[in-house]
C-alpha cells in the first residue's frame, strides 16, 4: 500500500493538469467503446461496410482512363 501512497498536498499545477487529461482521455475512451458496441447502433455503423465492393457493381470498368 505504501507504493500507492500519494502526497496530494505536493501536487503542482502540472500534476493536476496531467491527472485531468489522463482521466478525461480514459472516460472518452470508455464513451467511445460504449457508443460503438451499443447493439442499437450496430446497423447504422455497419451500413457502409460493403462500400469497397460497390464499385464493381455500380461503375465497373477496367480502370483505363481513355
Amino acid at each position: 500500500m505504501d507504493y500507492l501512497h500519494t502526497d496530494w498536498a505536493a501536487m503542482s499545477l502540472n500534476d493536476w493538469l496531467g491527472v485531468f487529461f489522463t482521466v478525461a482521455a480514459f472516460v472518452a475512451m470508455i464513451a467511445v467503446y460504449v457508443l460503438v458496441f451499443n447493439p442499437k447502433n450496430k446497423e447504422t455503423f455497419n451500413s457502409q461496410g460493403d462500400m469497397a465492393l460497390r464499385d464493381e457493381v455500380e461503375y465497373n470498368n477496367s480502370g483505363d482512363k481513355k
Binding site: 457508443l35 451499443n38 442499437k40 447502433n41 446497423e43 447504422t44 455503423f45 451500413s47
Partner: peptide
C-alpha cells in the same frame, strides 16, 4: 435512417 438515431 442514420438521421433517426441520435447517438451515431
Amino acid at each position: 435512417d442514420h438521421d433517426k438515431i441520435y447517438s451515431t
